[in-house]
Design a binder for these strands. Sequence first.
DNA 1: CGCCAGGCCGTGT
DNA 2: ACACGGCATGGC
Length: 234
Amino acid sequence: MKPQLTRGAARRLRQMHDQLLTAYGPQNWWPAKTPFEVIVGAYLTQNTAWRSVERSLAQLHEAEVLGIEGLRAVPLRRLQELIRPTGFASRKAPALKAFLALLDTEFGGSLEAMAATPTEALRLKLLALWGVGPETADAILLYGLGHAIPVADEYLRRIAERHGLLDPAPRRDRLGYAALVELTTNAFGEDPASSRPQQYNEFHALTVAVGKAHCGRVANCTNCPLNYDAHKLP
DNA sequence: CGCCAGGCCGTGT
DNA sequence: ACACGGCATGGC
């Protein structure tokens, strides 16, 4: 049984998107130069501040490892050292190597070939990778490979929960994630299909922007663009 | 010093 | 199914 979405939740979420876009402007995500850099960043940012990710990415770039061939060549030990600022190196380094193994064995080392795979099938392959959960898979699909798929994260969960869009208690497992994805899909359901990749792109970026400023584990609702006085904090 | 960060996995009920 | 602890580092 999925957590129930409250009536009007999708419409409300769409309004939030509009408010955030007005308040913050286009975010132009993902902050990366290449699709492969998006993918590496998606791994590194797991439960980790983006500022730390930037430091690891800089070290990878410096070592000329921030590309498919470089990452393939670098020894696991060395990789762990390079990504140390983002923590969890003993997990994230093998996880990145596992992604490369999938890329090489199933797609001839070509991100373009990987991107050409149908979305649902590719999503399952990514989820089967060790170290890849729903958010990482969807971020790779949307921002790295250009697929039209929503991304949910803890910020969106808190926003939806605190604004009463999820009823009653959200779940922290995959069903909970699926509910957030459904909510996002519904929020943009009235828009033309061709605009959806860009909408999902912008919406997740705006979610993170407002989340960082106002909707962390500790809510900081002062001056939040999402009329903070209209909802009840738990 | 304590809490937090753009998750995910393994284990125990 | 679901909760809960572990994983590591750096910023505030």
